[in-house]
Amino acid sequence: MPTRIQHSFADLRRVPRAGLVTFITAGDPTPAATLANMHALVCGGADLIELGVPFSDPMADGPIIQRASERALAGGMSLSGVLALVSEFRTRDNATPVVLMGYLNPIERMGYQSFAQRAAAAGVDGVLTVDLPPEEASEYAQAFHEFGLDQIYSLAPTSDADRMRRIVAAASGFVYYVSVKGVTGAKTFEIDDVRQKISALRALTTLPVGVGFGVKTPEIAAALSSVCDAVIVGSALVEIIERHPSNAAAALETFVASLRQALASGAA
């Protein structure tokens, strides 16, 4: 049976159109707000939701997502809380893939087996653990495999051919290409550099390739849509939540709809 992620990318290929992956931090600023925001992302046209698991030391994140993590932790969010949130989301939406994105320590603290089992039961489809390269992931991979969770790995402009091969061999679901040398929400990238790297990647894998970091506007999303299978937007959405802490859903939906429209036209 195809997974939600496979199903989603298969649908996109049929259209054809680049997918829209939207990131928000779980529990920012409250679990209830996140739940409403997740449904709003889907209503706006998101194809896949990435849910950030807040961590006290988000080394790979820029200030926007750092602040979101701090707000979520201040509100009591935890890895268990994130899983409960996904379960709750699944009572209304059993189709949209949900990928968790975070750091290793909370997962390691819960235990790889226990986490993988609980995440799969909650309806999580895959996990991107930012500070876990495949070299350190053998035990983690085993647990993920056992419970049918996809291991999303990122590739960067600094990844050479050897690393690209190693990563796509370990990856499942899709591959996350980090467009810039930097943290989330940072500078923008050169589309030609991204195109070049992704064509090298295509030669190594049939997995869908998403591109993130620095995608702030519908224009950038449209430009990217011709070179990849999915465009990943995070900080721009988290910024909307920061501006409208108690009622971001409508603003999120509107912005996501504008991104989605840009992708539809970009593919034409």
């Binding site: 080394m59 790995y153 960067a156 980090v178 040398k181």
Partner: peptide, 12 residues
């Protein structure tokens, strides 16, 4: 020990 960093830093 080990190397637990984002992919961008693995090359450097």
């Amino acid at each position: 020990g080990g190397k637990f960093v984002a992919e961008t830093l693995m090359g450097p």
